[in-house]
Every structure is written in structure tokens, then in C-alpha cells.
């Protein structure tokens, strides 16, 4: 029973992990808390559903949804991030929240506010290992999440492009002096984090076989919590945070009840923010110079 729950927690955690990595990429490098990402998560699931409904084959539908998410993310970069650079720190954050509301309500206008059944893309097969039931969809999404995050971590550490990104994260001016083209790098990062979030949304839809305009809020906000708990800007921190949140959610549902999930998850977030704001693996913020 407990092992089964741990496995379920792992699956859920893997999706939170993707969203958390998407957030951490935006915040670690661009210092931008991009609240449009839960919306892009939803676009991943909802647009795939929409394309399948008009008769596209499922892989085209997924590709189309990811493309759409990337496109929207470029708009976010243009309108929320770039325009808000000189303004107060709250402005881009709030503007990105505006994108979340916009995306949700556009989907609402198109598909209505009800839950929609997402077609089963994978054969309804379960692996049975010593009394444990593991769905094939669960395994595939876990594998995709882990591979994506591991690849990203390798990319940032080992490639030249990755080193450039980390230089920007360390210090913008230095990066510019070293000849990093920030104007080009920023949109690329926006696309990358949008794709991570949207893949999360697709996997969520495939796993739970339902979508709605609001599906991004729960996993999206929990992704933020996961990122903070792990430590802003740290990929492995997001991995740990995502898994922790996944476990915390599954365990509180099992042992206490579904309604207390938000208390556990956001209570944990609040506690971490107060006790150790830099998160488990993050660096403490630098101090001000007079």
C-alpha cells in the first residue's frame, strides 16, 4: 500500500519537477517569476486535446500544442518581460499573471469550463510487480521527465551554449562583456521553459485522461512551490522539490484526505520561505552595497 503510494507520488512529482524546472530556468537566468507557465502547461494539455478532436493524429496534435505554447511564450517575452525591464519588479510578474488569465479564458470560450475527457493514447496496460500496479503511461511520462531534466542539466554543464546561459545567470554585465548575445538568448530561454511546461501538461493529460481550462493552476502553482523548496535557479533543487511535493500530496491524500493537500503543500512552501528562503539547494542572496 505504502509502496504503491510512493510510486504514485513519484509519477506526480515527475510532472511537478518539469514545471519547477521551467520556472527555475526563467527565474535563475532571467530573474523573472513567469506566472504564464501554468497557462502554458494547460495549453500543452488542452491544445493537444483540441487538435485531436479536429482529427489530427496524436503526435501531430502534441507537436502542434508544443508549437503553440512556444509561440505564446515568445509573446510573453515581448509584452511582459522585455517591456517591463525598466519598470518595477512587480510589473512583469503581474503581466505574466495576465497571460495566465487570458489563456484560461480563451480556452474557456473555445471549449467551455467543464472537464473534458482526454482520449487514451496508450494501450491501457498495467505492469504488475509483486502486488504493485504501474500504468504504462506512468512509466513513459516518468522516463520522459527524467530524460528531459537530465539532458538539460548536462546541456547547461557541458556545452558552450549552456555555459553562456550560466554566465548570464551569474552576472548579466559580465556576460555581455564576454560577448554573449542576450537579446537572442532570452527568447530561446522562453521557448525552452515553455516547452518544459507544455510537455508537463501533455503528460498530465495522458496520465489522468482529462483536461480543463483550469488544469494548469494546481500543478503550475505546485511547480512554483517545488522550485522554491528546492532552491530557485537550481535544476537539481527543482527535481528534489518536485518529488517532495509529489510525495507530500499523495501521502496527505492517503492518510488525511484530499482537502488538506493545499495546507500541506503550501504550508511547506511557507515554512521553507520563512526558515530557509534560498531553498534546500539554493545560494543565499547577495547583500546590498552602500
Amino acid at each position: 500500500m505504502l509502496t504503491q503510494q510512493i510510486i504514485n507520488g513519484l509519477m506526480l512529482g515527475a510532472i511537478y519537477m518539469l514545471v519547477a524546472v521551467a520556472f527555475t530556468l526563467a527565474i535563475g537566468v532571467l530573474n523573472f517569476l513567469n506566472f504564464s507557465l501554468p497557462g502554458l502547461f494547460m495549453v500543452g494539455g488542452m491544445a493537444t486535446y483540441g487538435f485531436i478532436r479536429i482529427g489530427w493524429p496524436w503526435f501531430f496534435a502534441i507537436g502542434g500544442a508544443l508549437f503553440l505554447a512556444a509561440l505564446v511564450s515568445l509573446l510573453v517575452e515581448r509584452l511582459a518581460y522585455r517591456r517591463g525591464e525598466g519598470a518595477e519588479a512587480d510589473v512583469p510578474l503581474v503581466s505574466s499573471l495576465g497571460f495566465l488569465v487570458l489563456l484560461e479564458n480563451l480556452m474557456l470560450v473555445q471549449y467551455g469550463s467543464d472537464q473534458q475527457a482526454f482520449p487514451a493514447l496508450l494501450p491501457d496496460m498495467n505492469l504488475r510487480v509483486g502486488g504493485l500496479v504501474i500504468g504504462i503511461a506512468q512509466i513513459i511520462s516518468l522516463a520522459i521527465s527524467v530524460i528531459l531534466v537530465a539532458w538539460l542539466s548536462w546541456f547547461l554543464k557541458r556545452t558552450n551554449a549552456g555555459r553562456r546561459i550560466r554566465t548570464v545567470a551569474e552576472n548579466r554585465e559580465t556576460a555581455q562583456l564576454l560577448g554573449v548575445n542576450i537579446r537572442r538568448l532570452v527568447p530561446q530561454l522562453f521557448v525552452a521553459s515553455a516547452l518544459l511546461a507544455a510537455v508537463g501538461g501533455v503528460l498530465f493529460a495522458v496520465n489522468y485522461q482529462q483536461v480543463s481550462p483550469w488544469m494548469g493552476e494546481g500543478p503550475g502553482f505546485k511547480g512554483v512551490a517545488a522550485m522554491i523548496i528546492g532552491g530557485m535557479g537550481s535544476i537539481w533543487g527543482s527535481v528534489i522539490g518536485g518529488l517532495l511535493i509529489g510525495f507530500a500530496e499523495v501521502l496527505s491524500i492517503t492518510f488525511i484526505g484530499a482537502d488538506v493537500v493545499n495546507i500541506t503543500v503550501y504550508g511547506l512552501l511557507l515554512l521553507i520561505l520563512i526558515v530557509r528562503p534560498q531553498g534546500l539547494l539554493g545560494k543565499p542572496p547577495a547583500r546590498e552595497k552602500l
Binding site: 502553482f221 522554491i228 482537502d259 493537500v261 503550501y266 504550508g267 511557507l270 520563512i274
Partner: peptide, 27 residues
């Protein structure tokens, strides 16, 4: 305790706080 944090951290702390309070009433 919450105002020990600043900027984005504070925004998130208040966000979490709002969620927790609503969830408490839900229960």
C-alpha cells in the same frame, strides 16, 4: 516572520499564505 523575505520571495510567501488560509476554511 514572512516579512523577513523580500521581493519575489515575499510575493510567493503571501501567495502560499492565501492558499493555506483558504484550505483551512475548506476543512
Amino acid at each position: 516572520p514572512v516579512l523577513r523575505t523580500h521581493g519575489i520571495y515575499l510575493a510567493l510567501a503571501t501567495f502560499a499564505l492565501g492558499q493555506v488560509i483558504a484550505a483551512v476554511f475548506l476543512n
